[in-house]
Design a binder for these strands. Structure first.
Length: 267
DNA sequence: CGATTTTGACCGGCGC
DNA sequence: GCGCCGGTCAAAATCG
């Protein structure tokens, strides 16, 4: 990933000025420079988005070809009658599931059964698999939404507990999420989403992302969550989050703001 | 002090 | 009807 170098300094002359005219010129120049930077950033972001979409298409193409050969072992249905329902769900989703493995700290895949004939109580159901660090025992998954945990259970077919979450962004949002480690591979978190978000905005996403990041070191980019954000929105979020975590950016921002205030006051 | 998490209790569906 | 099990509730604990 190429680095994005942006001059965030404002170069404002906050000292005493000879005339009011020169300070106005400085402001105009500074404004023009900022506009130029903004344009550069926009172009770069567009470029990144295009490249990202291209890579995503290629990846999906490759993984789709491999899906047919993906014969992950299923549990013996005769040995556990209570697993029949889960088995049915798993079978229904299997054709749409892609598991991406990587040598990074985590990898992400996104699966929806939107196109599948399987429907569960007319609610959209999607599954997301996230590879996490083996040392990470948390069941928190960063996906940009604000979740409130309302329960945890140990299920029969899996030694690791399953956590139940509700979307707390909007009180009326019906979306629920279940997170559990994969029985086959404990380093994979499986999140099952039910329903669609009924709120357009993601007001506190940055705060949520930062909050979740602090709770779980395994945070990563969640791509194209069902009923959620577009790829571009995810990308912008991650970039914004990275920027706000960068002390240099924060310091530059503080300098810029204080400079503006001083300039305003001195005028 | 409000929001969130934890965790035992409770409920309902399902199979026998 | 009974027992099992997944899902939810809600009070207490914890966090920021």
């Amino acid at each position: 990933m190429e680095s994005t170098c942006v001059d965030t300094s404002l170069n404002l002359n906050v000292g005493p000025r000879d005339t009011q005219e020169t300070s106005s010129e400085d402001l105009v120049q500074e404004l023009n420079r900022l506009n130029s930077e903004n344009q550069k950033l926009t172009e770069r972001l567009t470029h990144l988005s295009e490249r990202f979409n291209l890579l995503k298409k290629q990846l999906i193409q490759v993984m789709t070809n491999n899906t047919d050969n993906n014969t992950s072992p299923e549990r013996d249905p005769t040995s556990d009658q209570s697993s029949r329902k889960r088995k049915a769900e798993t079978e229904a989703c299997k054709d749409n599931m892609i598991s991406i493995s990587g040598n990074n700290t985590e990898s992400i895949s996104n699966i929806t059964d939107e196109d599948s004939s399987f429907r569960r109580q007319s609610a959209k159901v999607s599954r997301v698999m996230v590879r996490i660090q083996p040392s990470d025992t948390s069941l928190y998954l960063r996906d940009g939404y604000q979740w409130r945990k309302y329960g945890q259970k140990v299920t029969r077919d899996n030694p690791s507990p399953r956590a139940y979450f509700r979307c707390s962004f909007a009180p009326s949002c019906p979306v629920k999420k279940k997170v559990q480690r994969s029985a086959e591979d404990p380093t994979v978190l499986v999140a099952t989403y039910e329903g669609e978000h009924n709120h357009g905005g993601h007001g506190s996403e940055l705060a949520t992302l930062a909050s979740n990041q602090s709770k779980s070191e395994s945070g990563g980019i969640i791509l194209g969550e069902n009923g959620g954000k577009s790829m571009q929105q995810c990308l912008v979020q991650q970039m914004a989050t990275s920027l706000t975590r960068d002390p240099n950016f924060t310091a530059a921002l503080a300098t810029a703001i204080s400079g503006r205030i001083l300039n305003f006051v001195s005028n």
